[in-house]
């Protein structure tokens, strides 16, 4: 693998992102709006309920939780729409004729976006939380959080690949991509912390891979789960990584045999 080629591709993508400065500022502002809305909603709920904790979350923890979710959402790469675009436009043929691996072109693009969004949105939000929400991270918790973010990014990339590969079999999967996004947000704890869901649903989500895409890192950062619980949970996350890796390989193999770009 000629690593330098992919590094150059990543650099070019970052330069392109930097070119649209206004877009960058607006994106950052909008990313922060969702947790601010949640802060207002949950403040009203806690004040009305007159309780200090709801399902192990204090108001400060739940507010922190949604800000961490915003940071993670910003860092998560969006690959499937890109694959759909490549197939629909026929651009995939142009990439495949180059001495490059399509998968690694996508991964290097994802890496560039992750790096860019982590530096511009993710880290600033997390630093602000440590300073203003007084989140005290021990070294072991910080290490577990970093590991959980790594698992989250790998799982998200592979899930996006799996969904994106469906574009090789159908002309337009935009609706399906939207559905998968909503499902991942909901089952991943992006809308509501998973331990707040009814016990039956919560039990199901605790074995699914989606929890690692948002809930687990956010719960570790806020201290809603102990380090021991986090370690046990991450073992399951690594197992899911293995399963997804096999699925991705199988899907890519099937997709390559079925390659048929539309070019609209």
């Amino acid at each position: 693998m000629h690593l330098q080629r992919y590094v150059e591709y990543s650099k070019a993508l970052i330069k392109r992102r930097l070119a649209f400065k206004m877009n960058m500022v607006l994106l950052m502002s909008f990313q922060i709006m969702s947790p601010i809305i949640m802060l207002f909603v949950w403040t009203a709920i806690y004040l009305a309920s007159g309780v200090s904790t709801i399902s192990n979350f204090t108001l400060l923890q739940i507010a922190t939780y949604f800000f961490v979710i915003a940071a993670l959402n910003a860092m998560a790469p969006d690959i499937s729409w890109g694959i759909l675009g490549d197939v629909r436009s026929g651009n995939i043929f142009s990439i495949l004729t180059r001495p490059l691996s399509y998968v690694w072109v996508i991964v290097s693009g994802a890496f560039a976006n992750i790096l860019f969004d982590t530096i511009t949105v993710g880290i600033p939000i997390l630093v602000l939380l440590v300073v203003f929400a007084h989140v005290s991270l021990t070294l072991s918790t910080a290490a577990l959080f970093a590991l959980s973010v790594l698992v989250m990014l790998c799982l998200t990339i592979m899930t996006e690949f799996l969904i994106g590969y469906i574009a090789f079999f159908f002309i337009d999967i935009g609706g399906l991509l939207n559905i998968s996004n909503f499902v991942m947000q909901f089952l991943g704890g992006g809308m509501i912390p998973l331990n707040l869901l009814p016990s039956g649903i919560s039990a199901v989500t605790s074995v699914l891979p989606f929890q690692f895409m948002l809930y687990t890192p956010a719960a570790i950062f806020t201290g809603a789960v102990s380090n021991v619980q986090a370690e046990q949970s991450l073992i399951l996350g690594v197992l899911w990584l293995g399963i997804f890796m096999v699925l991705c390989y199988g899907m890519w193999y099937a997709a390559k045999r079925h390659i048929d770009a539309v070019g609209v």
Partner: peptide
């Protein structure tokens, strides 16, 4: 495709 857009 329209069914999926509608469902989403």
């Amino acid at each position: 495709q329209s069914v999926f857009w509608f469902l989403s």
